[in-house]
């Protein structure tokens, strides 16, 4: 076999493994099957379309190959989506999640809603399973905006896992505003612990270690704002905010904001 072909197959296998690991919890969640059937089709299309630039940038940072140009990164993103769809279709079929007689529209919807998380998993696989180091050496560190982008992906990843579940809305309605304040404080505390432990750096070349207070202002707080935005995005995407009043929406954002914040802060560990 030619070296190029073998390399392509190895990378694809690795990506498929990553897609499986990351998408399995969602592939085996009943709410996700229901969402595939019931989710507004335009919103589903927007979900997939919006994921393309996100996956492209992600691929540029960490994808299967060291992508030299944006065209390669866009190709990798498309490939990851395709792989995600294929794995979703095979697995949903294998576990009989499609139900006895799915129509074409139902099956397409059920696979489509799984594509995006599986594609993220496929792209992340490179760093998880890859033998070769995908990142530049640690002392270089990604620039601030890149750091924020990776935090957003981390938040999206955990958010996508939890947003479809009924539990988010149940908790949001049980929690009093004081529970909400505790959730925000807890999220910030946990995030800051991660930020501090992983040693986020500033964009300025002359500050190898940021003092705690500056790191809180420059990474933890913007990271939480980003996590909250991702929380609202995923909740809206899955129709959780439809017919939900303002206050209940805020409580849901704060509830899902907790896992999103942890995902954002831990992104540096995963990615």
């Amino acid at each position: 076999m030619q070296r190029e072909t073998r390399r392509f197959l190895t990378t694809s296998g690795r990506a498929a493994g990553g897609a499986l690991i990351f998408a399995l919890p969602m592939l085996m969640t009943a709410e996700m099957w229901g969402l595939g059937l019931a989710m507004d089709r335009l919103r589903l299309a927007a979900f997939i379309l919006l994921s393309v630039p996100m996956l492209t940038v992600l691929s540029h940072f960490i994808g299967f190959e060291r992508t030299a140009c944006w065209r390669d990164a866009a190709f990798d993103a498309a490939y990851a989506l395709g792989l995600g769809a294929a794995i979703g279709a095979v697995l949903l079929g294998a576990i009989a999640a499609f139900g006895p007689r799915p129509t074409f529209d139902q099956a397409v919807g059920q696979v489509a809603v799984q594509m995006v998380p599986a594609a993220i998993g496929a792209l992340l696989a490179r760093t998880q399973f890859g033998s070769e180091s995908a990142r530049p050496p640690a002392d270089a560190g990604p620039p601030y905006v890149g750091e924020m982008f990776l935090m957003g992906v981390g938040a999206l990843f955990l958010g996508l896992n939890i947003a479809p579940t009924e539990e988010v809305m149940t908790l949001a309605s049980r929690m009093t505003p004081w529970h909400g304040i505790a959730a925000v404080a807890g999220s910030l505390l946990a995030m800051h612990a991660f930020v501090y432990a992983v040693g986020f750096r500033g964009g300025s070349a002359h500050s190898p270690e940021l003092p705690g207070r500056a790191a809180f202002l420059r990474f933890t707080l913007p990271g939480y704002a980003l996590a909250a935005a991702v929380s609202v995005y995923t909740l809206w995407m899955f129709g959780r905010l439809d017919g939900t009043g303002f206050h209940q929406g805020v409580m849901a954002m704060v509830t899902l904001g907790l896992p999103c914040a942890i995902g954002a802060a831990a992104a540096r560990l995963i990615v």
Binding site: P143, Y144, M148, G202, G203, S204, L217, R218, L221, P222, Y224, A225
Partner: peptide, 14 residues
């Protein structure tokens, strides 16, 4: 510069 941008992002988020 990068530091001012990061501080501004932090202030808005705060």
């Amino acid at each position: 510069d990068a530091r001012r941008f990061e501080t501004a992002a932090g202030a808005v988020s705060a």
